[in-house]
Design a binder for these strands. Structure first.
Lengths: 150, 150
DNA sequence: TTTGAATAGTTGCACAAACAACTATATGTC
DNA sequence: GACATATAGTTGTTTGTGCAACTATTCAAA
């Protein structure tokens, strides 16, 4: 039932995520040299808020694939930086809705430019169709491990 | 000069490494339920020692793509678990060579089986040729960002 | 309506990562 | 040989992660 027809050799670096670590480090350096005091993890939370402001911490857990304590602390730190604000839901008082502040909104343009730049550097000389295959494979891997019960 | 012909959309999850995180978590769970008290990061160090025993901490830095303090502490913890041993080099006393203990050697078979199992589950239903393309792309990404000066 | 289960979020702990600053040893040049 | 420089490794600090245990609130069933 399993597909063993591939070489496992360099696949183990998949596990340690060397490629994504390299991308994250490059982007972090760009943040630092641009004077942005923001970690990649904090940025990844803001990224989802830019797409949809006011979602709950639990929704941020699902979106970023982190557990609840991680999001609690990331939101703590983003609040200290006054980039987001916790607002208790009126209808369900268990829920915190997380809203961007003006400052948090302002970071979108600059950081997304740096993120695009980083991806362009990372994917330089990689044909678009291969990028698509890669995206597809990583999505299936994620679904195989997270959305199934196996 | 940049190749902008691909959609950036879901690419940002590359940066956060969701797929490799999912693989690592699955493998960690297998370790835990097998009663192995070993983190994935510790395992990744042992992995390179199984391939070549007695390499230096600096060589482990390069192999695992981690900085020196990270390796210092990983080796600290592996020594506490009596899985490896630091041995000062005779010819260059700055260098620590890291050697597997009997216990460290014994872990190879069981953990590599669990790692293979994890990769099989992750790549279930992914055709081998697509896995190859994905490996190739991730390798280029890594080289673009780490082995170039850009 | 009371009780028990589910859900949202927080806190404590151990481990890991990135950066800066540090010690110790080796190397190369005058 | 002396001194500057490079290399190997360690330590301190801040941040993030995963797990377990906890509180508060909501929901559902008797």
């Amino acid at each position: 039932m399993s597909n063993n027809q591939f070489k496992k050799g360099e696949l183990y670096s998949f596990i340690t995520g060397k490629a994504s670590t390299a991308i994250a480090r490059r982007l972090q350096k760009k943040f630092n040299t641009s004077g942005l005091h923001l970690t990649i993890e904090q940025w990844s939370v803001l990224y989802h808020l830019w797409k949809q402001d006011g979602i709950s911490q639990q929704e941020l857990c699902n979106a970023t694939y982190r557990d609840k304590p991680s999001i609690t602390r990331l939101v703590d730190n983003l609040e200290k930086l006054t980039l987001v604000k916790r607002v208790a839901s009126e209808t369900d008082r268990r829920i915190n809705r997380i809203y961007l502040t003006k400052q948090g909104q302002k970071l979108e343009e600059e950081t997304m430019l740096l993120a695009d730049e980083t991806l362009n550097e990372a994917l330089l000389s990689v044909p678009a169709d291969k990028v698509d295959v890669c995206k597809e494979v990583l999505q299936i891997v994620y679904d195989n491990l997270v959305n199934s019960n196996e």
